[in-house]
């Protein structure tokens, strides 16, 4: 499995039967490929789909939130942007999975601007991080060796204190009031490797091998 597949497969285990889920662009999108067959999960796309299906080449009338041709599943609906964000901000989304430029041990996320360099804008990310019941960050553990999981984000925030779980190719970490707890480590790495690649202080109690690594699905 590639790093991205490892992250996506592990996050899929966090989804529960019946959940309404919004996946961000990039690694988060891959999570849909690993939803176990015995669970029914409904995907939302913030441009206005409840019941988002797979990608469809050359489709121009139905697009996903990345503007790519997509499909809608039976039972799904098309909605306007206010209704879409009523789902997101009103607490009706069970889980959102998003990428990160930086994420910190207090659960704050930076993902929309590198001042002076790159300003893509926040799109729906601020609403999703603030409004979803559970926020999972899918990210590479470092940016070419430079830690992305920090004591405190240095880039402008997307939202403060909203992240619940961070999943990387190396580890699974949970944010709680006590701090950032290391829950699982990929068998290719040691706990020491993870500590070295992380700027945040990690709480280490019982650390398990990372789940979801079989090549099934």
């Amino acid at each position: 499995m590639t790093d991205k597949q490892i992250i996506a497969a592990r996050i899929a285990l966090e989804l529960n039967d019946g959940d309404l889920v919004n996946l961000g662009i990039g690694i988060p999108t891959l999570v849909a490929n690993y939803v176990p067959a015995d669970k029914t999960v409904t995907f939302q796309a913030e441009n206005g789909i409840i019941g988002l299906g797979g990608l469809v080449e050359d489709e121009t009338e139905i697009v996903n939130a990345g503007g790519m041709g997509a499909s809608i599943l039976e039972g799904g609906s098309f909605i306007d942007s206010a209704t879409s964000f009523a789902f997101i901000r009103g607490g009706h989304i069970d889980v959102t999975v998003l990428g990160a430029l930086e994420v910190d041990q207090e659960g704050s996320l930076a993902s929309w601007i590198i001042p002076g360099k790159k300003v893509p804008g926040m799109g729906g990310a601020m609403d999703l991080v603030t409004g979803a019941k559970k926020v999972i960050i899918a990210t590479k553990h470092t940016n070419r060796g430079i830690p992305k999981i920090l004591k405190k984000c240095r880039l402008p925030l997307t939202a403060a204190h909203q992240v619940n779980l961070i999943v990387t190719e190396m580890a699974v970490m949970e944010v709680s009031k006590a701090g950032l707890e290391l829950l699982e480590v990929h068998p290719n790495y040691s706990i020491e490797d993870v500590i070295k690649a992380t700027e945040a202080e990690l709480i280490i109690n019982k650390v398990l091998p990372m789940k979801g690594l079989s090549d099934e699905n």
Partner: peptide
């Protein structure tokens, strides 16, 4: 847009998508 913004030839107000809709 990014280029014109950094050259201060275009004003850009970025608004969270849900806030813009509402």
């Amino acid at each position: 847009i990014g280029t014109l913004m950094s050259e201060q030839k275009l004003e850009v107000e970025l608004v969270p998508q849900g806030t813009l809709a509402e």
